[in-house]
Amino acid sequence: MHEDGLKNFLGVTASISTILQFLTGALVCQKVVQNKSTGDQSALPFISGCLSTSLWLRYGFFIKDTSIILVNTIGAALFFAYVITFAIYSLRKSILFRQFAGCVIFLLSTLVYIQNIESPQIAQRHLGLICTMVTIFFFATPLVSLLHVLKVHSTESLPFPIIFSSFLVSAQWLIYGVLLGDPFIQIPNFLGCVLTGFQLSLFYCYSQNTKGYSSELI
């Protein structure tokens, strides 16, 4: 009974933390609107987030899980709004549009593929695997700026609020996945902890050279 109570508690707190994580993107977009430019920041984390939440939303409907449906409905709407904000202020709109179009094509192809699988069990397993891979990609997308970060010794191009909240959320879901014994929850969130933990270490290493976040990290 104690374990079931812990599972329910973690399920609720992880859902709340996930929604709060999604809202951190608003801090990044607020800075973009204030500067009237996206600067060196890429929209790819938001685009991949839009794709990830859309796939998990379909998975939620597939298994009829209200929490997954609610969390990812909110997430998909927020990430789409963030992408629109970046599209307005980005100087490299063609790159953003190509990335977004690629994600839309991937999403539609996945939905069609899953829909045509006759066995519900196989369809659920395949969709879960796809969601796992996309989630790992979502955690890793800020690494596209890694070479730039290492070159200029500054993490200004990395979205700290998103990375930090992703670390906390993935840690919660990892514990929840261990309690459930569900590898589809354990694997992506373990890797999420590793990837986001590495990115956070860069903020510590280059805190003196990063404007805006250095004072928060010291």
Rank of each mutant, 00 (worst) to 15 (best):
M1T: 14
D4M: 14
D4R: 11
L6D: 10
N8F: 12
T13P: 08
T13C: 08
I16D: 08
I16S: 06
S17E: 03
T18M: 01
F22V: 15
T24A: 11
A26D: 04
A26L: 12
L27T: 14
L27D: 04
C29A: 11
K31C: 06
V32F: 02
V33K: 15
V33P: 13
K36P: 08
S37K: 14
T38R: 08
L44P: 04
P45Q: 09
G49T: 01
C50S: 13
L51G: 13
S54P: 12
I63V: 15
I63L: 15
I63Y: 06
K64T: 10
D65E: 15
T66E: 06
S67D: 09
V71T: 03
T73I: 01
T73F: 00
I74T: 10
A76M: 09
L78G: 11
F80P: 08
A81G: 04
I84E: 03
I84K: 12
A87E: 11
S94L: 14
F97G: 03
G102Y: 09
C103Q: 10
I105S: 08
S109H: 05
S109F: 13
T110Y: 01
L111S: 10
Y113V: 12
Q115P: 03
N116H: 07
N116P: 03
S119Q: 13
H126S: 06
C131Q: 13
T135P: 07
I136Y: 06
F139E: 07
L150W: 13
K151P: 05
S154I: 01
S154F: 00
T155S: 00
E156D: 15
E156A: 14
I163R: 11
S165L: 09
V169M: 05
L179A: 08
G181V: 04
P183L: 05
I185H: 04
I187K: 07
P188D: 03
P188T: 06
L191R: 11
C193N: 03
V194M: 04
F198L: 00
Q199R: 01
Q199S: 01
L200G: 00
S201I: 00
Y204P: 00
Y206K: 11
S207F: 00
K211L: 15
G212S: 05
